[in-house]
């Protein structure tokens, strides 16, 4: 049997971006070009590999975002996904539980055997979505997969735990979240980038998949972490410098008591 795979995709800022609080009050970096959340990218790569190996018949990307994400979604298509669905939130603010609900509701309208996603998104670092989606759909979650094997209807993953490797399996439909060591995402070839421009992206209005689920949490504000102070060099020979260091740590910085 050949699986239908849906990959969840979130757009994030590149890991090297310099975050500041923008005029909107939200953290961001207007000058960096956004990317696919690196963990989601592992998921897409794995899905495309399964398709190339003949184990999957179709790979669909699914996002909850805005039309500013289209370019990023196209990159996922360039990696080899066949089509994409974007749930457009417009200017609405929703939290992870609502995102998960929207995703789950949309998934229920689609055919899928395997859902692949990242274990977390690098911007929030939360990793709530895989679990929430699994719970809402009532399907097993194979979390933080370092290796994925598909045999017919059975999905086996390896997860690196503290000092051991755990092998877990489940029957489809199942949701698998990707860890960093899962694979090395490909660099899309130019013909594939060009082909991706012609692949279909369906847009779904948020209201169609999120009916009235109220927000239970509210983000109060964002602020930048305190800046790191400058490096101080303590002068003097070993002995004197050591004394000074103790003095600074105890009396000035009050780190050591």
């Amino acid at each position: 049997m050949s699986l239908k795979i849906v990959c969840l995709l979130k757009q994030t800022l590149p890991t090297e971006a310099k975050i500041s609080i923008l005029d909107t009050g939200k953290p961001g970096d207007a000058r960096s070009k956004p990317i696919i959340n690196p963990y989601d990218e592992f998921g897409i790569e794995e899905a495309v590999k399964l398709k190339e190996a003949g184990k999957a018949s179709e790979v669909t990307l699914l996002s909850v975002g805005t039309d500013k994400w289209l370019e990023t979604i196209r990159r996922g298509l360039a990696m080899g996904a066949d089509q994409a669905v974007l749930i457009d939130v417009g200017s609405e603010e929703i939290d992870q539980s609502q995102v998960a609900e929207a995703l789950a509701n949309q998934l229920q309208k689609m055919e899928y055997d395997l859902v692949l996603c990242g274990k977390l998104a690098v911007d929030t670092g939360l990793g709530e979505v895989p679990g929430r989606v699994a719970a809402r759909l009532g399907i097993p979650l194979l979390h933080v997969a370092a290796k994925v094997d598909v045999e017919g209807n059975k999905v086996t993953v390896e997860r690196v735990a503290d000092g051991n490797i755990v092998h877990v399996e489940a029957e489809c439909p199942v949701i698998v979240s990707a860890d960093k060591s899962l694979n090395k995402p490909r660099f899309a070839s130019l013909p594939n980038i060009m082909k991706a421009k012609k692949k279909p992206i369906d847009t779904v209005a948020l209201a169609d998949v999120l009916s009235g689920a109220a927000q239970t949490r509210r983000t109060v504000k964002y602020e930048l972490p305190p800046e790191r102070g400058p490096v101080r060099m303590l002068e003097g020979e070993n002995d004197a410098a050591a004394r000074k260091l103790v003095d600074v740590l105890v009396n000035e910085e009050k780190i050591v008591h």
Partner: peptide
């Protein structure tokens, strides 16, 4: 280097504001 040039506009991957 490619990713950095594309995302940050320089091969080092430093933030543009730098």
């Amino acid at each position: 280097a490619f990713n950095n040039m594309e995302q940050q506009g320089n091969p080092w991957g430093k933030p543009p504001d730098d």
